[in-house]
Amino acid sequence: MPAAALNARLVLHQVGDQIINGLTLGMLYILVALGLNIILGLMGVVNFSHGSFFMLGAYVAHDLQPHLGFWPAIFFAALVIGVFGMLFESSLIRPLYRRLPEYTLLLTYGAALIFEQFVRWKWGDISLPSQTPSYLAGSITLGSFEVPLYKDVFLVGITILILIGVWLLINKTNVGMIIRAGTRDAEMVRILGVNMPLMFTLVFGIGSFMAGLAGALAAPVYAIIPTLASQWIILTFVIVIVGGIGSFWGAVVGGLIIGMVQSMVELIPNLGPTMIDLSGFMIMAIILLIRPRGIFGVEGLFE
């Protein structure tokens, strides 16, 4: 085979690998961003602790795995974080609803500082080893691609199933109807007789559950370290801004775009590491210029 053709195949292969990586990364971004976005859309709460819930999900799953096995540990870790999120909302965030929404951002920022130190205290500063069961550790061959079984097949598949579930919850159930109506006008929904405080707690629980689930699913793939929360939360904000506040498809498309772009720019020679960190913000700037509300954002929300 001529050298040029071989080279072209190599590049094609790298691009294919990065597309698969981007898809996996994008799926995790979607899970985290969707949880944040539902909370933000309905309650106007910018939850800075959302990244901490993601991180705690990873740590709790890591601790539960020796006792419960791989899959149950992931589920129960997410459940623990979901319940914890409900307690967090009803005790600390609820008193702030009468004030400006900025104060919820401030409170959850302070809480995130505490969570990070708690994790350092409980699990230490160094990253924990990942524990993928042996039957998931291998990879399958797809044409000429070696695809890691857990990272790119199970993780993506499970995320798609969860997304379908969340879509059905939002669009086909009574709870979802209240969430959609509340995103537009929470006051009106309250007047119609819906117990909004209970609804808020429930939705905060669902959002936290998703963050915890994403963390637990990400644990075998990414290093579990105490700075995980601060690394993820800002990118999650960027995804929400790009996709549009309060929108299901906004979180999905925003997460995929950022995940894909981040893994594609890795291929740019020399510039790779810089671009991975900066590309998300560049996309945010472009979106702000051409469509300030985000791709699926509703005009006038949180003006």
């Binding site: 900025e102 801004i241 810089t274 913000f281 702000l288 949180f302 003006e303």
Partner: peptide, 27 residues
């Protein structure tokens, strides 16, 4: 950002913008 955002949206965007300076200094 000023003509395009206010409130919590403004807070999130300024937070993200600061990261650009941080990463530029870093890289």
């Amino acid at each position: 950002i000023v003509p395009r955002s206010s409130g919590i949206y403004y807070a999130m965007i300024t937070l993200a913008s600061a990261q650009v300076i941080y990463f530029l200094a870093f890289h």
